[in-house]
Nucleic acid binder design. Structure first.
Lengths: 205, 205, 205, 205
DNA sequence: GATGAATGAGCTTTCATTCAT
DNA sequence: CATGAATGAAAGCTCATTCAT
């Protein structure tokens, strides 16, 4: 009746991933997780010392990657020169290798970290993520069109970017060309942003 | 120390609006609501027969408006002719009167209906909303560029639209030019969408 | 089926007093207390917000009295002149009015505070109590017989005093002449202490 | 990494002695004991069949010595003739050899037996110990002063004796002249008792 | 209309003990 | 001998809801 430690640990992590994903940390039930993993609450505590420890086991790596991202903001700016490229196709080709390095970060557990961590010590990550992009958007907007009158759009577009990333992660299972979709989405954000800023360089022929 | 019935009912609704907004239906606490409204749990049940009934009282109107929206899809398509307008400024002017009629619907209680209703019978509204727009996006994409290869973008862009509307409602309190922001956001979505579809009509001069 | 609030509160306090007395704070069971008081755990939390709050409700007054005692050390020293009185009977008469003021403090709840508070924020009271008396004993011993070689006796006699007070409180229910017994006990401590210190003034005729 | 059976058994006993001493039988944790002994809970049950069996292994010898003591009450009475000796110094000298035989009994495990056995079958030992001395005190009191009116003092003084012995054992580690302190303490009890009984023989010159 | 006492099921966590390996 | 996975009961506490007053 005994399972090798790693097996059950993995089962617990898998069950927890689903449960946290469906209900969020606070509404998730340890009872439901252990039931799904085929064990008992008592035994659960041989594997994880608390509910939060289980969540942490799921998101720790993602959180480290998250902090690396936050600390290397210049990387996000690297495709900056693209803003002067008129050709959408060229954009795609140049964005591809850049996002290749980012894609492995955008997985389900990253989603838990950003979108399902209320009640844990990771609760504020989404806000940090939003603000991180908001600063960049505000900066870009000021440089491209200092007269653009709708300041709150910086915040809103940043949230759009974050929401979009999370949405894509959510549907990643059912998407074939996951990588391409991320590229398309970034392109969508870039073009839309430039559009409302009235920049006409893009799509000129 | 009895209060006129309507007064307390209103206080309960206001307190509930805040609580549901902050925590969502399931994590919201009736105790916290009645405390904020200055009454007791016992008395609460003279006004609403359950936790869900209180939520329903808040969102019922919004839900009716939501269904009207869902049933009059052609309204959403009305700005369709804009897609051929090359001028962003013209877009803004034409979108304005159209969204004037929609804005009163996009209030806090609509937000509760779409984004805080998990655990109630309204739980699926967001999904309906998403799908509603997804169909339109897919349709537009097919018409504008039948060869565009990234089908899942329809779903994603629809979610972007819904997320954006909800984000704007969330920050409506702190935004001056609420209406203009909605227009800017729609514009952003439209331009971005056309951009990835490679349509070059817009912003041509 | 409903009891007036104060009634059940009193029942809970009584039941808790017994349970804490028998098992100490940590081993005491809320379930056992509420069962003895004839209610449910859910209802218990309408009366006290935690296990510790219940304990605190029992000992708060005693703790205040305890601090008054600790802050008025000179009162403890007041019978100091007695040490030169040779007559045990005179001691009794002089101690009586002095301890009259102290006796109401030495009740069952004081016992809980000193001897059953491990696991609560009151955990250290017994040690404070011991040290308080130890200092006095050490002081007295130095003055009465600077050459007495067994220094640790100060600590031990202080503990004897504290233990004795607690023992008397424990058996107070079954004792007729509670007040007199306290006097006899203090006398016992005083005479014993002087005896080992080799002071011969007492009981001389 | 197997250890010779006796080694680990000893380690478990040592760890248990500390744990039971610190927390008492019921609050002691097997997990903590096995961890301190460097083994696992499973292995623990190769050495002791239950929590109580471990406690029993610790106190069995002490309990036998305890019963010997209880059965040879006349030994306790042997210093009886001292009660007529007027000289404290003489008391000390005569008590010394007598208690030499008793001291080895008063060790840490004896302390566990008397003061940390609640929840085990040894739970009542302290009460037996108290009663044992109480009978002697009552007896002495009746013989020395048949008119002494405070009967409960017998019980209280017996408890004082027991408490004192336990207190001294507790602090034995930090005391130099352990044996002398026991003598001083007995003397303290004897003189204090005689004092309240109004016997004036002692300390007369 | 209003109060708050009462209920009972739910939650996460701890524990001594058992047992397959 | 040793491991540590597994069990199940118990702990303190929270919650929406009911109901006597």
């Amino acid at each position: 009746m005994q399972i090798k430690k790693e097996d059950l640990r993995t089962k617990l992590l898998d069950a927890a991933e689903k449960e946290f994903y469906m209900k969020g940390f606070e509404k998730a039930s340890i009872r439901a997780i252990v039931k799904a993993a085929g064990t008992t609450t008592g035994n659960y505590y041989n594997y994880f010392e608390s509910k939060e420890a289980l969540f942490e086991a799921l998101v720790l790596e993602s959180d480290q990657a998250f902090h690396v991202m936050m600390d290397h903001e210049e990387a996000i700016d690297r495709p900056d020169d693209l803003w002067h490229t008129p050709d959408v196709h060229a954009w795609r080709e140049q964005l591809k290798p850049f996002f290749k390095t980012l894609l492995p970060v955008f997985n389900r557990r990253f989603y838990l970290l950003i979108a399902r961590s209320e009640g844990t010590k990771y609760a504020g990550r989404r806000e940090v993520f939003n603000r991180f992009f908001a600063e960049h958007f505000i900066d870009h907007m000021a440089r491209f069109n200092p007269d653009y009158p709708y300041a709150p759009m910086g915040t809103i577009l940043a949230k759009q970017l974050v929401d979009g990333i999370l949405n894509i992660i959510e549907s990643a299972d059912t998407i074939d060309a996951y990588e391409d979709i991320v590229i398309e989405f970034i392109l969508f954000i870039a073009i839309g942003t430039m559009g409302i800023l009235q920049r006409k360089e893009l799509s000129h022929d």
